[in-house]
């Protein structure tokens, strides 16, 4: 039996870190983004094609098909009415897919997170990297649909360029919320509840397809729980050349919710993965 007496040993009686401790992600998160980008770059053609087809379908089916019956919506064509909001809608769906199905596969099926945290990266870094990656994919989708809408000639104000920083905000928020769900998920089935109970309502109640004022007041209140609702409203205003003070309140609110969600995603993932 070896004796260990007399060896230098720092004495530390501090209690072990709890999962509620403040997240501390570092720039190493970029390495996780790199890893996901490398995998994505293997089949980017298919992915990008899909991102093109999706918005065109929306524009054709809703805009031209349904829009044929609607002559004017708040003074513009139906296509012009739905186009700015669609940028946020499709970006949100992309981010959610990536940070639920994608992240769950990496975490639970492939044990990729486990492999990464044996390197200098921490779980906070991994989750920050996943958020960064999800947001990037959202941004890519948004850029593609933005291009399609521009080609359809539906943008009327240079202010629509402000949609991009807003998509980044939306991306970080949706990625964080999705990772919170993933941190609780035991199977893919679990993710389906999230789509049915949160994502689908957040999408359809956000006022993309018709003005919220059509809803009874109680449903309007619920609609404002969707992070997309203020974004759709702001995007529409931007396309009409309006930049106004009322936009500030909802944006600050979104920023706060985003920060809280990001921290929560990291903490909950730590709770799940550190045993």
């Amino acid at each position: 039996m070896q004796m260990s007496a007399g060896l230098k040993m720092p004495i530390d009686l501090r209690p072990p870190a709890r999962w509620v401790s403040l997240p501390a992600a570092s720039l190493l998160a970029v390495r996780v983004w790199e890893r996901n980008f490398k995998v994505f770059s293997k089949h980017w053609v298919g992915a990008v094609l899909a991102y093109f087809v999706d918005p065109i379908f929306y524009l054709v089916i809703f805009g031209i098909g349904l829009g044929g019956y609607i002559t004017s919506m708040e003074g513009e064509s139906y296509l012009e009415f739905i186009a700015p909001g669609l940028v946020f809608g499709t970006a949100m769906i992309t981010v959610c897919m990536e940070c639920t199905y994608g992240s769950f596969t990496r975490m639970e099926i492939q044990k990729t997170f486990e492999a990464i945290i044996a390197t200098p990266l921490s779980i906070d870094d991994v989750i920050a990297g996943e958020i960064l990656w999800g947001t990037s994919k959202g941004l890519l989708t948004a850029a593609i649909i933005f291009l399609v809408i521009a080609l359809f000639g539906l943008f009327h104000s240079p202010w629509v360029a402000l949609i991009f920083p807003l998509v980044i905000l939306e991306g970080i928020l949706t990625a964080s919320l999705s990772l919170i769900v993933t941190s609780f998920a035991s199977t893919y089935e679990y993710v389906n509840y999230y789509y049915a109970l949160f994502i689908a309502p957040a999408f359809y109640l956000s006022g993309i397809f018709f003005p919220l004022e059509r809803f009874p007041p109680w449903l309007q209140h619920i609609a404002y729980l969707s992070p997309m609702t203020p974004l759709v409203r702001i995007a529409r205003a931007l396309n009409r050349g309006v930049v106004a003070g009322w936009m500030l309140g909802p944006l600050i609110c979104l920023l706060v919710v985003t920060a809280v969600s990001g921290f929560l995603a990291m903490s909950l993932m730590k709770r799940r993965l550190i045993r």
């Binding site: 492939q110 044990k111 486990e114 044996a118 390197t119």
Partner: peptide, 16 residues
């Protein structure tokens, strides 16, 4: 961890 090499019990190679 920067100075460690780890072979975990379960294979966790990156299948992607």
């Amino acid at each position: 961890k920067a100075r460690l090499g780890v072979v975990p019990q379960d294979n966790n190679l990156d299948d992607d």
